[in-house]
């Protein structure tokens, strides 16, 4: 059961990520990214992180991706133009990606003592998580809330239309 779930959702994850690269319309890429994030939530659940699975669906697949699709539709982003990209990306980027993946795979396959994930063990309850979050890590948690507040204010300030913009857009 565990194996089937893992293979199914790992496959969905990879398929979604590859589809994100292949699609030329941003909205299709955004929908594939939602597939990737939702499959990752299932994988978190298989690893016993139940709170993170819920947060992944609510925060990432929900809030963040709604923001993405909203901006894509607001800006009416069309099909992207296919260009070859920069020369640096082709000559340095792709070999570097292959090398990084090869190194990571080699290191991962040689790690000794890596365990296995089963359905029974290692489930972190939300209670355990919140106990640490609200006692030992209370200050970082509150700082994060201030960070999000600043981010909201910054987003509003950035996206707000300046005074000169209205006439310039009308003139176009």
């Amino acid at each position: 059961m565990h194996l089937i779930l893992f293979l199914l959702f790992a496959g969905l994850c990879l398929a979604g990520a590859i589809n994100l690269l292949l699609q030329s319309h941003p909205i299709n890429s955004a929908l594939s990214l939602i597939v990737v994030m939702t499959s990752l939530a299932v994988l978190y659940l298989l690893l016993g992180a139940e709170f993170l699975a819920a947060a992944q669906v609510i925060v990432y697949a929900g809030a963040v991706m709604v923001l993405f699709t909203f901006v894509i539709m607001l800006l009416n982003a069309g099909r992207e133009e296919r260009t070859l990209g920069s020369r640096a990306a082709r000559t340095v980027g792709f070999p570097a990606v292959v090398v990084i993946l090869a190194i990571l795979a080699t290191v991962i396959l040689h790690i000794q003592g890596l365990g296995a994930a089963t359905m029974q063990d290692g489930i972190t309850s939300t209670e355990d998580l919140s106990t640490i979050l609200f006692t030992k890590l209370l200050l970082p948690f509150e700082v994060t809330s201030v960070l999000i507040l600043i981010a909201i204010l910054g987003a509003v300030a950035l996206a707000r239309r300046g005074d000169g913009d209205t006439e310039r857009l009308a003139g176009k």
């Binding site: 565990h2 194996l3 893992f6 790992a10 994850c13 990879l14 994988l43 298989l46 690893l47 993946l101 990571l104 795979a105 991962i108 396959l109 790690i111 890596l114 365990g115 296995a116 994930a117 089963t118 359905m119």
Partner: peptide, 12 residues
Amino acid sequence: GIPLAWYLLLSA
């Protein structure tokens, strides 16, 4: 169970 290396490979 699933070896955790598979999860790491998927992540990479």
